[in-house]
Design a protein around this nucleic acid. Sequence first.
DNA 1: AATAAACAAGACATATCTGGTCTTCTAGGA
DNA 2: TCCTAGAAGACCAGATATGTCTTGTTTATT
Lengths: 134, 134
Amino acid sequence: MMELTRKGEYAIRGIVFLATQPADQICLLSDIAAAVDVPQTFLAKIFQQFSKIGLVRSYRGTGGGFILGRPPEKISLLEVVEAVEGPIVPNRCVTGERDCSRSDTCNVHPVWMDVKEQIRDILARVSLKDLAGI
Amino acid sequence: MMELTRKGEYAIRGIVFLATQPADQICLLSDIAAAVDVPQTFLAKIFQQFSKIGLVRSYRGTGGGFILGRPPEKISLLEVVEAVEGPIVPNRCVTGERDCSRSDTCNVHPVWMDVKEQIRDILARVSLKDLAGI
DNA sequence: AATAAACAAGACATATCTGGTCTTCTAGGA
DNA sequence: TCCTAGAAGACCAGATATGTCTTGTTTATT
């Protein structure tokens, strides 16, 4: 359980690769996909999600492609993962204040809250710079 | 992401309820299912998994039912969760030594190892006694 | 021994999620 | 005006999640 999906795995591989490239170099999606061994059309979806929240910047047309939206030390693994997998929510109770009729009496609740915070902490502390090994 | 399935949620609810009952009281599956609001047939499957690894003990025939396999303070939340959801494995690399061709060069690997250990630590520290609020 | 109460086990059904593909559209450069 | 490259969304197959149903097997009771 608690497994990252392929989408999340591909997302990390793709953006970490981008972080290894020179900061001003616009990378072709096809090159990224080939480099990290991910189906190009699938990676396209992922990078579109990145683009919407500014993790990467996209350029269309001839000579287009992608570059990081911020310096790699300013992008955390947490952001990358949550961008494609959604917020980290170990169980339904933790989702929000809402819709857990048991949350007031549920002793499990605080345990999941703790799990959630620990995971987020760990992932937030790791940047693309760390992962790219620069 | 990282979400517990309903099966896991039901499993916890069911066995925690059992922990609130007197230690020597054999509980009917139908009573447990009703108490924690879970489909009985589904809960049956879950308790069969518990039974196989000794988390609960089952008695068949008239007057049959379930009791905890060990005192509630000797059963951790980790055991319960892993019994029905499988081992905690945040990404595929962490599975084992095997089948991650990238693991040697992959900087993400140790991060997931860390996540895995933190989650396991937290869940291992919580017992059914804690959760039952005894 | 017959019967009824309970769990065991596995086949079956359905809905949702994953992992991808395909087509069409839009933007920019040559 | 072409051609290139990303944007966006429809589409689809397979896996997984979430149950249900049927048919045992075991046990206590009468």
